[in-house]
């Protein structure tokens, strides 16, 4: 399984990366951690004519705390997020999610920006971004997470646009993210995340549709004093997840309710 041939270039700055992407004429792809892109290229499901390697764009590798916000550079590796004392203190749910991405080898290479830009419905950071109203910052604009994930693998990014940063609100309160999966390193068949923020609960679901889902009915029920058990009954309302080899649509809806309840019980 050898990828198709492509032109390779290396960028050392955001401006250079954007310029190289532009020269690729819409056929160039960004190479960051490569842990989604390279497997797709090996299967020839993706055959970009050019790759722009941004691993040398050091200005995108950072974690910064600023005015109640956690800013994570797009090139930050999962392993760096896991080890970050600042993330653990100000947004521990992000560190916990990062620690459950793939396996240690994947966490060495995979990047936060890569997961967001790839927009896989099984990705975990997209759910956190949507439930916390995060912002995705590119080389030219800021996009609210709820507008960023348009469909499966589909975002509003232009072919020459580079994800530079994601900005989360700090949220040190009770939280939990539970993945249901058959193997420890697998993608979640379904996952549920809960986070207390500004006196209320934020609830998100992974892999229950083509984009991350914010379970607003659960949030509203909790705001009116419902127990986790009662509130989580609404977790799958309005959802029609797809069926695949791993789970039927109905089973995914069941998992959404059960994982939401468990996450709320374990977070509180």
């Amino acid at each position: 399984m050898i990828p198709a041939a492509f032109e390779y270039s290396r960028a050392t700055s955001v401006a250079e990366a954007v310029d190289l992407l532009r020269r690729g004429g819409g056929e160039a792809k960004v190479l960051a951690g490569g842990h989604s892109l390279i497997p797709l290229m090996r299967l020839r499901l993706a055959q970009p004519t050019a790759l722009v390697d941004i691993n040398g764009v050091k200005e995108l590798d950072y974690i910064r705390m600023e005015e109640g916000r956690v800013r994570v550079g797009a090139l930050t590796r999962h392993a760096t997020v896991v080890r970050s004392a600042e993330v653990r203190r100000h947004l521990p749910l992000l560190a916990e999610i990062a620690g459950e991405v793939g396996d240690p080898q994947v966490r060495s290479r995979g990047t936060v920006g890569g997961v967001l830009a790839h927009a896989d419905s099984a990705g975990d950071y997209p759910t956190l971004a949507v439930m916390l109203d995060a912002e995705i910052v590119t080389d030219r604009r800021r996009i609210a997470a709820r507008d960023f994930f348009q469909h499966l693998f589909t975002t509003p990014l232009a072919p020459d646009e580079l994800v530079c940063e994601v900005v989360f609100p700090a949220a040190p309160g009770p939280h939990r993210y539970l993945k249901f999966r058959r193997r420890l390193f697998d993608w979640a068949i379904v996952a549920a995340g809960v986070q207390q923020l500004d006196g209320g609960w934020r609830v998100g679901l992974t892999n229950c549709g083509p984009t991350p889902v914010r379970a607003t009915a659960v949030e509203a029920a909790l705001a009116q004093g419902a127990t986790p058990s009662a509130a989580s009954a609404a977790a799958a309302d309005g959802l029609n997840p797809s069926s695949d080899l791993r789970a039927s649509s109905e089973y995914r809806r069941h998992l959404a309710r059960v994982l939401t309840r468990r996450a709320l019980e374990q977070a509180a």
Partner: peptide, 9 residues
């Protein structure tokens, strides 16, 4: 750092 060398150019 441990890396799967089949997933890196």
């Amino acid at each position: 750092a441990p890396v799967k060398s089949c997933t890196m150019f």
